[in-house]
């Protein structure tokens, strides 16, 4: 799914410095909205007792969609993290597949019910299978980039994580290696202000994760993660540069986690209400709509039409997924090893 059909045929003329056509803007809005509505429906299913666990990306959708749209689908690799539903949607995951994943269904393409929800992976879409152990995917991204370099394949790899995860050794070992070997890796950090209950001050003695790049002689940038267009316009040049052999890049998108850490978390224990209220005004879904509407890029009816389509898509996907088969118990014994 690349775009939502609306009444008017859209022009593909770039309207911004880094090649965002009206068509792409529409696409961006669609994915941002789809990610949010899917997460809302997932949480509802959790509250109804139909889904054991939800971990969502509310507040980070614009960052995810903006970054993923800067990649070449089916060519570039991503090693995402659990909140990156938006990234996966851009790369081709359907609403139905997202719901299969939530429910751990037999046909979930990510892990067929073998992993918790939001542990992504697709060979065809070049999404690297991901575990719960944060930042272990960083060396994988670097290894893919190293392999591609050995094969002289002009691909880029994007690895993403939260700011709290940048304290782990795998993060640092990966930046170090990628910088030494000048590998085409975009390290994309979605700084949402919290690692479960721990605020950034407890995670690192720096204001910006991006400053960690200096220790590895790596370029970096900080971008407003609530603004999908700004994220795209920051990530895209870094991707292009990496593809040309310009080496790795660390990008920090300043976001905010609008929801509790997960469906099992009670954030009232540690989060000031006022802070949440302030950040809610910068909700990326709202912000994006306001921007394209006030800029006069899209008439209100078009945006309403996208909303309706997304709502319908999500509703249908949930209903459909609930009826899909569960894994057979004995399936637990299969695929321990790959047969030679």
């Amino acid at each position: 799914m690349t775009s939502v059909r609306t009444r008017r045929e859209r022009s593909r003329r770039p309207i911004d410095e880094y090649l965002l056509s009206e068509h792409q803007l529409e696409e961006m809005y669609y994915y941002i909205l789809l990610a949010r509505r899917l997460n809302e429906r997932m949480l509802a299913l959790n509250r109804q007792g139909r889904a054991a666990f939800v971990i969502a990306g509310a507040g980070q959708e614009a960052a995810q969609v903006g970054a993923a749209m800067a990649l070449q689908k089916g060519v570039d690799f991503v090693a995402p993290y659990y909140r990156d539903l938006g990234v996966n949607l851009v790369l081709g995951m359907t609403a139905r597949e997202a719901m299969l994943n939530l429910l751990g269904k037999r046909d979930d393409p990510n892990s067929h019910g073998r992993q918790m929800p939001a542990h992504w992976g697709s060979v065809a879409r070049r999404v690297v299978t991901q575990s719960s152990v944060v930042t272990t995917q960083f060396p994988h991204a670097v290894g893919i980039a190293l392999a591609a370099k050995l094969c002289k394949d002009p691909i880029v790899v994007m690895a993403s994580c939260g700011e709290g995860s940048t304290s782990r050794g795998d993060f640092h070992e990966s930046l170090n290696f990628a910088a030494i070997h000048h590998l085409p890796v975009i390290f994309f950090v979605e700084n949402n202000g919290y690692a479960i209950s721990e605020r950034t001050e407890k995670e690192m003695p720096l204001e910006h994760v991006a400053d960690r790049a200096r220790g590895y002689g790596m370029q970096s940038a900080v971008v407003d993660g609530m603004d999908g267009i700004a994220v795209y316009q920051t990530v895209r040049p870094a991707v292009d540069q990496a593809r040309r052999g310009g080496g790795p890049f660390l990008i920090e998108a300043k976001c905010y986690r609008l929801w509790p850490h997960s469906s099992d978390d009670d954030d009232s224990r540690y989060r000031p209400k006022k802070e949440l209220e302030e950040w809610s005004r910068k909700d990326p879904v709202k912000l994006f709509r306001e921007r394209v509407e006030s800029d006069g890029i899209f008439p209100r009816e078009d945006l309403d039409e996208i909303e309706r389509r997304v709502e319908e898509e999500v509703r249908e996907a949930a209903q459909w997924a609930l009826m899909q088969p569960d894994p057979e118990p004995e399936d637990a014994l299969t695929f321990v090893y790959r047969e030679a």
């Binding site: 960083f138 994988h140 980039a145 190293l146 591609a148 990966s174």
Partner: peptide
């Protein structure tokens, strides 16, 4: 080891 994982995946 992690870089080997990535390279093997490729």
């Amino acid at each position: 080891i992690g870089i080997s994982v990535g390279a093997a995946h490729y």
